[in-house]
Design a protein around this nucleic acid. Structure first.
Lengths: 157, 157
DNA sequence: ATTCAAGTTCAATTGAACTTGAAGTCAAGA
DNA sequence: TCTTGACTTCAAGTTCAATTGAACTTGAAT
C-alpha cells in the first residue's frame, strides 16, 4: 500500500524546518509518530511532513501543543484530511485570528485616543484598561486585563 | 513638597490590579520603587499607580519587562511625563501594534486562501508558510517562521 | 581497523514573568 | 498576653516549548 521511502530524522528536520530535537519532543508528546529501523533509529513516512506543516500553521495561529494534539486526534488517523475536515479546522482558526486582531485593534484605538492627551489615567485610560474584565466587576481594581486571546504565550523557535 | 499619604502594598495591589508579589518583583527588577516604614514595610507614593498603569499598558502592547524598564528609564525621573514624552512613546507602541496586526492579517489571508482547497502543501501553502523568511533563503527549508513580532511570548497574569 | 557523523536516551536547563512556600517580624485588638 | 493578619526576605517552583548535554550506539567511508 504505502510507499517504501522512509525519511531520516535529519531529512525531516531539514524539510520541515523543525530541529531534530523538536521532532523527538513532538513524538514524546504524541503529536507525530515514527517507525524504527532495526537499530532503533527513527524512520518517518512522508505524511509526517504534512502533519508538521499542520503543527506549524496551528502554532502560528496561537494554539498550544496540547490543543494541536487534540485537533490532530480528532482528525482521521491514517488518511489525508478531506476538504470537510480542513474546512472545520480553518473556521476554528479563522475565528481565533479574528479574535486576536480585534483585541489588537481595541488596543490600538485606545492608544490613538491617548495620543496627545498625555493621560494614562489609571481609572479611565483605554490604553491601560482595554475594557474587558475589570471595568465590569463590582469592586473592580483600577487596571485591567488583556483579553485572553492575547495573553497566551506562543513561541515556536 | 510631596503629599504625605503613602500607600501600603496591599492598597497598591488592589488599586493597580497587580498581585503584591508582582509589585515586589517589579521593584526587584527596577521598574518601580518604594520607600520603607521604620519597620521595613513598603510605602508607595501615589505616583506609582500611574507608573503601574504604564507598565500594564506597555505590557499589553507586547513589550518585555526589560523594554519597559528602558522606556521608563528614558522617562524623566520624578516628574509626570509631558505630552511630548507620551507622544514619542505612543508612536513607538502604535508602530508595534501595527506590525502585529499586519502579521495576523497575513496569517488570516493565508488561511482564507486555504479554505476549501484542503491544501496545507508544505512548499506552497501560505498558512504553514506565511512568507517571511524561509521562502527567500536559497536552500530554504519547506516550512516557515512566524514574523518576530508575533513570536514574542507575553503573559501578564 | 579506525574514525566520523549521525543517531539514540534521559535528565537537566532555558527564559519570561511571575507565584509559592518557609521562616520570621511587627502592630493592633481582645 | 496572646493571637491574628499583614507584612518582610529569600529560595525554589510554575508553565510552555523546546534545547542542551552526557553517555552511548550505529553505519558508512577511509
Amino acid at each position: 500500500m504505502s510507499s517504501q521511502e522512509l525519511l531520516t530524522i535529519s531529512e525531516v528536520a531539514h524539510r520541515s524546518g523543525f530541529a531534530a530535537s523538536a521532532l523527538r519532543f513532538y513524538e514524546s508528546q504524541g503529536l507525530i509518530d515514527a517507525q524504527r529501523s532495526p537499530s532503533g533509529r527513527r524512520c518517518y513516512e512522508r505524511g509526517v511532513l504534512r502533519r508538521l506543516a499542520f503543527i506549524r500553521a496551528a502554532s502560528n495561529v496561537g494554539l498550544t501543543l496540547e490543543e494541536i494534539r487534540d485537533e490532530l486526534d480528532r482528525l482521521p488517523r491514517g488518511r489525508t484530511p478531506t476538504r470537510a475536515d480542513w474546512q472545520r479546522i480553518s473556521r476554528h482558526w479563522r475565528a481565533r485570528l479574528d479574535e486576536q486582531m480585534l483585541a489588537l485593534q481595541r488596543l490600538r484605538d485606545g492608544l490613538d485616543s491617548c495620543i496627545g492627551c498625555g493621560c494614562l489615567s489609571l481609572q479611565r485610560c483605554g490604553m491601560s484598561n482595554p475594557g474587558d474584565i475589570a471595568a465590569t466587576s463590582p469592586d473592580a481594581p483600577g487596571a485591567a486585563y488583556l483579553p485572553a486571546v492575547l495573553r497566551r504565550p506562543h513561541r515556536l523557535r
